[in-house]
Computed example of a mutant assay.
Amino acid sequence: MVRPSEKPNRVHYELDLLRALVTVADCGSFTVAAARLHSTQSTVSQKLRRLEDLAGHRLLDRGVRDVRPTDIGETVLGYARRMLALNEQLGELLSGEGVATVIRLGVPEDFAAGRTTGMLAEFSRTHPQVKLEVSSGLSRALTEAYDRGELDVILVKQRRGSREAVACWPEPMCWVDSISTPSLLLNPVPLVAFPPRGMYREDMIDAIEALGRRWRISFTSSSLGGIQSAVADGLGISLLPARAVTAAHKVLGQESGLPPIEGVELALLHRAALDPQARALAGLLIRMLEQGAA
Score class of each variant (00 low, 15 high):
G56C: 09
R58D: 09
F30H: 08
R216Q: 14
L186Q: 02
D152N: 07
G253K: 03
P4A: 09
A33V: 10
I208H: 07
V22M: 04
H38Q: 14
A193I: 10
G198F: 01
I217H: 00
L258V: 12
R213K: 14
G149D: 05
A85F: 01
E88Q: 12
L252N: 07
G98R: 09
V134I: 14
G73L: 02
A248S: 15
R271P: 00
V245G: 09
E74F: 01
A34E: 07
I237K: 06
I179D: 11
A247R: 15
P190K: 05
A34P: 09
R115E: 09
G236S: 12
P8C: 06
V134S: 11
S238H: 03
L191V: 00
V44Q: 10
A293V: 14
L191K: 00
L285E: 06
E255R: 14
T116V: 13
L93A: 13
N9G: 06
L21W: 08
L239F: 04
A112Y: 05
E74D: 06
F30R: 12
P259M: 08
C27E: 15
T246W: 13
A35W: 03
G225C: 12
E109D: 08
R243F: 01
S256P: 04
G212T: 06
K47P: 04
T31I: 10
V22W: 02
G91V: 11
Y146S: 03
G212E: 05
T75W: 01
C174I: 00
I237W: 03
